[in-house]
Design a protein around this nucleic acid. Structure first.
Lengths: 217, 217
DNA sequence: ATCAAATGTAAGCAGTGATTACATCGGAGG
DNA sequence: CCTCCGATGTAATCACTGCTTACATTTGAT
């Protein structure tokens, strides 16, 4: 059973931490987030069931590490979309954020699930997770403020309510997708397209692009 | 150990089904939806760990039964709010639905969690769950159609995209609350109030109440 | 009263997160 | 070079989970 000398790291693994995270990600991708078990991750890393607990206090800590990695890629996706658009027009900046967020969630549903969870991970205990969330929030607040200063966004919209609405909208859209709620709502076109249209509609509403002849009532 | 005769139903319980559902609800309310176990529900009903499986094929079936009960109350809340408002103004009808939905979710977060889950319950296998969801969807579609026919809602808004947006918005709002995402978004006022304001802002946007001077671009 | 179906129990399986006591390795000080 | 200690791994075990099988009891229709 013992590996021959020369084979790397027979007893001491070397970088179990990284390999456990990788194993967990693979597990999530294959069997879903609920099927993750510390034991299985350990087995995949070729290590005893108790070994992971040397590096992660509990399952939550392991999942939090996975979430931190994923969050890095999420913010990257958002920032990339934002830098491609430029932020000359604040409304288009908000649209870019929504698109980057949505695109990433669509491409990485299981990772999104992990990040969004508050039972699987210790979100508030992770400076990385709280920090990057706060960063996006501040960018959005700035865009809203600039949009209202320039008259591009109606000044009658309370910034904090607008903020919460936007956040709820995009989060709801992604969660509907990940939670599998689309079947019930008869989205006949490809989900990605339907979602993109919903995003555009919502952003356009913020941009005041839809008149009723009764505006300002 | 054996109950004296006269005490109701020593061996055969009588209505274990109802009591198991009740026990499960109690369990959810006390320790959260993740802490539910069939064994514990059985214990609370004063029955052996295997007994529940006579009435529910598996844990999912038990949770689905709980969801069906909860869904009944959710649609009731929506319909009640809707009937109080009347549906003379379609936009106000949509607002009423949003309010009824939100109010129920705020008052019954754990039940909402169960209904919204697609891993805990078998949503698509339950005619009651799919049926009541579809019913609400049809009411909303009708309100949108009437709103656009009367010019109360901008005809430039694609009905299906508007539908999806509204659904995503309200669902996202509720899930943010239930998933505990509010702390991260610095909602300084009571959450219920902030959510109500977000709902009003969103509905007002649908009603075209916010001019920018650039509308119709 | 009988007997089959409905409904309960007892025992046990495999898998889970987590803890404890012990084994082994690797690197710093003598 | 060697020793020793802390870091890292293992083995064994606990309480708990969903679920199954074999068996016991009760009930209601005939």
């Amino acid at each position: 059973m013992t590996k021959s000398p020369g084979t790397r790291a027979a007893y001491h693994h070397g970088n179990l931490v990284e390999e456990l995270i990788a194993a967990t990600i693979g597990l999530i991708e294959e069997k879903g987030v609920d099927a993750v078990s510390v034991r299985e991750a350990a087995k995949r890393a070729g290590v005893s069931p108790a070994a992971p607990f040397r590096h992660f206090a509990n399952k939550t800590a392991l999942m939090t590490a996975v979430a931190e990695q994923a969050m890095g890629r999420l913010t990257l996706s958002v920032q990339q979309e934002l830098s491609e658009t430029g932020d000359a027009d604040p409304v288009e900046g908000l649209r870019a954020i929504a698109r980057g967020y949505l695109a990433w969630a669509l491409a990485n549903p299981t990772h999104f699930d992990v990040i969004a969870s508050r039972t699987l991970i210790d979100f508030h205990g992770s400076p990385k997770l709280t920090g990057e969330t706060e960063a996006i929030r501040l960018v959005m607040l700035d865009l809203i403020a600039r949009g209202q200063a320039s008259g591009r966004i109606a000044r009658t919209l309370a910034p904090d309510a607008l903020m919460l609405s936007a956040r709820a909208f995009i989060y709801g859209l992604c969660r509907m997708w990940i939670d599998g709620h689309f079947a019930e709502w008869h989205v006949d076109k490809p989900a990605g397209q339907a979602m993109a249209e919903a995003v555009d509609l919502f952003i356009d509403m913020i941009g005041g692009r839809h008149a009723t002849g009764q505006a300002g009532a």
